[in-house]
Amino acid sequence: MSDEQLHFEISQYVDGTLPPAEAVALEKRLQEDPAARRLLDEYRRIGDLVQVALPVPEMDWDKLSAQISAAIDREIVPLMDEAGNVPVNYRIGVWKPLAMAAGVLLCATLAVVLLKGKGETVGSPPTPVALAVPVPETKTPPVALAMSQIQVLTSEKPSGSPVLEVQIGPAPDRKLNLADLYPEMASDYRPSVSIAADPSRPAMGDEFGIIQ
């Protein structure tokens, strides 16, 4: 057993997380090895120190709890519906879908610009409005997209209702409607967006295609 392995076992022994059989073997080693016993003692001492001696700032706890309560009444309660649900962007863990939505928006904006750049007449180009993004309910990890990651496969103008498909991976999985993301966008520029993806595993080099 290397020193590192021994030290790791001693650390787990201190924490009570070493499996029983290994703990028995370690106890035998500790009886015979003064250096190991010394390390065990030092690890225990560190644990004692950090548990009893770390300070906590003095607070006016009553005031803190009152402020939190007031903030909830002011910022969260007015947003709740009758069932007590809160808009997702106030909940934990929503940065991931937000990042995904931002990525989709980036692609969509790029596509709109490219479509226009081809000289196609598909209506007046819109000015993107301030985002009020209804974030989809999802637990997918972020699709943090940099411009350099986006590769437009084609910028052909779709016939009929323009459709923008943003492709990350092989299988269509979910759809986002850009009309929801860009509510004031001119109708000709309201593509629906499909993220065809394994959204849990976006990777650098994934290609984004505008597909008719």
Binding site: V52, A53, L54, P55, V56, P57, M59, D60, K63, Q67
Partner: peptide
């Protein structure tokens, strides 16, 4: 609501902090 000054660093807050032990 801070009892010992604002934005205290780790080094300074210990003077106005209570240990949890």
């Amino acid at each position: 609501i801070l009892g010992g000054g604002n934005g205290q660093s780790a080094a300074s807050v210990a003077d106005s902090a209570t240990a949890t032990g």
